[in-house]
């Protein structure tokens, strides 16, 4: 586990948790990103607020990448195969909305509320994710 970064991971997770608390305490809505994304592109209710949350989600990284650490290269290593990118994006969009949540909605908000459904959903998507990566590694696509 030479890439293991538990301290920064934990600090980042706590900051994400604080965002969930601020958002819920103020607006009464849970910060599940796939739901906010769906509402921003399909719903008319709270459209501006949902869009502004998503804009913030880009502004946060912009502040770190370009203002706070402009000399540090951006860590963004991603496959360049559109045969993975396009089906991958489609399945993430379709699956999170069919399943009612993503890593934030089920994984953080749902488990934080001790929702059994969210615990099961999170176990399922981590499991199918692990199986997918295992198969891609066997095919030599990922190391």
């Amino acid at each position: 586990m030479h890439n293991f970064t538990p301290v920064s991971a934990l600090i980042g997770g706590v900051i994400i948790g604080l965002s969930v608390v601020l958002y819920f305490y103020s607006t009464g809505r849970l910060a599940g990103i796939s739901g906010i994304f769906e509402n921003a592109i399909t719903s008319t209710s709270q459209k501006a607020s949902n869009l502004l949350f998503l804009i913030g989600l880009v502004v946060g990284p912009v502040i770190i990448y370009y203002l706070i650490m402009p000399n540090k290269p951006i860590s963004f290593e991603i496959t360049n195969s559109y045969l993975l990118i396009i089906p991958g994006g489609f399945l993430v969009g379709f699956g999170t909305r069919l399943g009612g949540g993503c890593t934030s909605g089920h994984g953080i908000c749902g488990i934080g509320r001790l929702s059994v459904n969210s615990m099961i959903a999170t176990s399922i998507f981590v499991t199918t994710g692990v199986i997918t990566v295992f198969i891609l590694q066997q095919l030599g696509i990922y190391l």
Binding site: I33, G95, A121
Partner: peptide, 23 residues
């Protein structure tokens, strides 16, 4: 929930992006 979470996991494994990081 079961089918949706399963499909989401496959897409997540194909690329390594879930909705938050994707945006």
């Amino acid at each position: 929930t079961i089918i949706g979470a399963s499909l989401f996991g496959v897409g997540w494994g194909l690329v390594g992006l879930c909705p938050g990081p994707a945006i």
